[in-house]
Simulated assay, not measured.
Amino acid sequence: MTKTTPATAFLKRKNVTFETLVYDYDPSVSKLGVHAAAGVGESTDYVFKTLMAEVDGKPVCVVIPVARELSMKKLAAAFSGKSAKMMKPADAERITGFRVGGISPFGQRKQVSTALAREALELPYILTNGGGRGIQVKLAVADALEAMGGGTADLLASAD
């Protein structure tokens, strides 16, 4: 039995069907999302990372595939802004109520505008952080979008 996190409690309150998967979190790895995918035995195509950023100084949340990079230009455009930057880890922890490495798009302390990478629409389900280090939640893309209260957007840097 996995302990309840603010994210899983939020999903339960919203009556969202999800599965919780746990893995051994290792903070020393360079790509935590890729490590999470391997830890739960899923392709990196299905595992998404939660990033906290700022667009024109306002906090936003984006959820993108773990093996891909975020385009700051596309991020700003997705939220009708002029400039975007990654949020400082301490600010992300304060706003979300989660620790870096365990930030979930669900059940954040402060609701902020959220966008899911449009590539998710091609998938039957995604996995994203379940509100704790070493915890992933697996849910249908439509359910994830509804629970996030956001939309989809073109967010990814071009793959080389």
Score class of each variant (00 low, 15 high):
residue 117 A to F: 07
residue 66 V to W: 01
residue 148 M to T: 07
residue 141 V to G: 06
residue 34 V to K: 00
residue 3 K to D: 13
residue 50 T to F: 08
residue 18 F to T: 12
residue 139 L to T: 04
residue 22 V to D: 06
residue 73 K to R: 15
residue 19 E to P: 09
residue 107 G to Y: 00
residue 33 G to Q: 02
residue 55 V to L: 03
residue 96 T to H: 04
residue 48 F to K: 09
residue 90 A to D: 15
residue 156 L to M: 03
residue 27 P to C: 08
residue 156 L to Y: 00
residue 139 L to K: 01
residue 136 Q to G: 06
residue 92 A to P: 09
residue 109 R to L: 13
residue 47 V to P: 01
residue 111 Q to Y: 10
residue 48 F to I: 12
residue 18 F to G: 09
residue 98 F to M: 06
residue 77 A to V: 14
residue 69 E to H: 13
residue 155 L to P: 10
residue 113 S to L: 13
residue 53 A to L: 07
residue 37 A to F: 04
residue 99 R to S: 15
residue 121 L to F: 11
residue 28 S to D: 11
residue 131 G to P: 13
residue 78 A to G: 06
residue 58 K to V: 12
residue 124 P to G: 11
residue 122 E to V: 10
residue 110 K to R: 14
residue 58 K to F: 13
residue 73 K to P: 10
residue 94 R to H: 07
residue 76 A to N: 03
residue 10 F to T: 11
residue 80 S to C: 14
residue 57 G to C: 11
residue 147 A to Q: 03
residue 22 V to S: 13
residue 11 L to I: 12
residue 25 Y to R: 05
residue 71 S to P: 06
residue 125 Y to P: 13
residue 74 K to D: 04
residue 106 F to R: 05
residue 80 S to G: 12
residue 30 S to D: 15
residue 135 I to W: 01
residue 11 L to T: 13
residue 73 K to V: 14
residue 148 M to V: 08
residue 18 F to A: 08
residue 148 M to D: 00
residue 152 T to V: 15
residue 106 F to V: 09
residue 106 F to M: 01
residue 130 G to D: 01
residue 66 V to A: 03
residue 121 L to E: 15
residue 84 A to S: 04
residue 22 V to F: 03
residue 147 A to P: 11
residue 131 G to D: 05
residue 107 G to A: 05
residue 147 A to C: 09
residue 141 V to S: 06
residue 92 A to N: 04
residue 56 D to T: 14
residue 126 I to S: 04
residue 115 A to L: 11
residue 84 A to F: 01
residue 83 S to T: 15
residue 75 L to F: 01
residue 68 R to H: 12
residue 85 K to W: 07
residue 127 L to I: 09
residue 45 D to P: 11
residue 60 V to S: 02
residue 37 A to V: 05
residue 88 K to A: 15
residue 63 V to P: 03
residue 63 V to T: 03
residue 91 D to F: 08
residue 27 P to H: 11
residue 10 F to V: 10
residue 120 A to S: 00
residue 56 D to M: 07
residue 140 A to V: 14
residue 86 M to K: 12
residue 117 A to T: 06
residue 7 A to C: 09
